[in-house]
Design a protein around this nucleic acid. Structure first.
Lengths: 240, 240
DNA sequence: TGCCATTTGTTCGTATGTATC
DNA sequence: TGATACATACGAACAAATGGC
């Protein structure tokens, strides 16, 4: 099974062997073999099988749960980005139940990227509202919203849950429109990873979005969204 | 420095300490301290500092080079996605030198996602052309292009390097237009990771794009691009 | 060219902690 | 409470890559 004289590393050989094994005999969601069993099966040290499993977790093939076991990973959702669309609408279009949970809200001083993207001066006060988006009851994204304090002064007090875009429209009469998004991919920090319930070794899709008031053209919201990459893909459609 | 009775893990404490240390006294591109020195500095096992450094590599704060050392990571580029733009044009807009290198070309049978997205039948022949994009001499993206065999039959023979979009236009008179992109984030496989010269632990941004012929509306190209996430971000502008 | 010191990478061994059922 | 499974941490040795002499 394992060639100890191959230039290919042992953990790579094991990772490949496991991947084949999975395709042959397991379904997404199945519990996979324990580290102990894999250790015996391949005749190597437990660290080595852990390293192999780690590779597959990184690639999104397996998932681990502390104290319980290792699973075959599930498939992903798609998230559509387009002119006027927002998160809520686009995911609902797939007939999935979406909810938005308020995590934290406070007033902070705008600095650096926040100030720049909202076209404010350093030190201007902004609302920072953190929300968690769940899709079908599962945590899918963390969103930090930044709003200039004056554009909707009641937002900090009044907003409790649901789409913030809808709130701005009904509460303050502001029709916000996405004008740009910057998409990147990184590993999550420990806090985000925990809040999203992510398997370790999985990256996040980070989207920084600027929203403008359709009437005045003023920047009314800047948001940083961290999507679980194993659940969400972004679909970008060109409006031709 | 390290609290061994804290519920916070030692490697997390060290990772945080290093992050502060970096901000205070290092610049992007600098060589950081060796594992040996960190081991002595924090009074822990080498595995433990390796784990801490691994966290920071995942977060894109540090980069490692086998046999040489650990560096402070550099900043990222931005890659703009918009209606008609293509990789070459959009990155050149930033005054950077871009080149495209042919890695492989062959004829394959369309199956699954490729057949579906090119609106072909399973088993129809397509050209598969793999290219490497370099920005400022550094590998930035791997692209697998899929073209229906009949839309530009000379492509497999003739195409050698440069923008494939430009080639299709000048050689076969096809003006291709991006109609959708699907963006996701995963860990790279070993081959892509090697070709892109990526530090291990870094994710890739994967973009699946469908291009249409502007005249006939026929699907003329499907491509899968794997961007180095530590170099490239995607900027999506809404054409209002 | 080749050798050496340095640095990161891999693998083994062992022990203990923590989560789940 | 106990059994099982994954997580953290320590120690030791050797392999592989790099750069300088």
């Amino acid at each position: 099974m394992i060639d100890r004289y191959s230039p290919e590393k042992i953990y790579t050989q094991i990772a490949n062997a496991i991947e084949v094994d999975i395709q042959d005999t397991f379904e997404p969601g199945d519990l996979y073999l324990s580290e102990k069993i894999l250790t015996e099966k391949f005749g190597v040290n437990r660290h080595t099988v852990r390293r192999a499993v780690e590779e597959l977790v990184k690639q999104g093939v397996l998932e681990k749960r502390h104290g319980f076991g290792t699973f075959i990973a599930e498939k992903r959702l798609a998230y559509r980005i387009k002119g006027y669309e927002r998160f809520t609408e686009s995911v609902q279009a797939n007939d999935l139940q979406v909810e938005s949970i308020l995590l934290d809200k406070k007033v902070i001083d705008a600095r650096g990227g926040v100030a720049e993207r909202l076209q404010l001066k350093n030190g201007d006060e902004v609302f920072k509202i953190d929300t968690l988006r769940k899709v079908e009851g599962k945590a899918a994204a963390l969103i930090s919203h930044f709003l200039p304090k004056d554009i909707c002064p009641t937002a900090l007090e009044q907003y409790e849950s649901g789409s913030l875009g809808t709130f701005l429209k009904t509460e303050c009469g502001i029709q916000a429109k996405r004008i740009s998004s910057l998409v990147s991919s990184t590993m999550p920090n420990a806090e985000d990873s925990f809040k999203l319930g992510m398997a370790s070794g999985q990256p996040i899709l980070k989207v920084k979005t600027i929203n403008e008031d359709t009437k005045t053209g003023r920047r009314v919201e800047y948001s940083i969204t961290r999507f679980r990459s194993d659940m969400i893909q972004l679909e970008i459609l060109m409006n031709s």
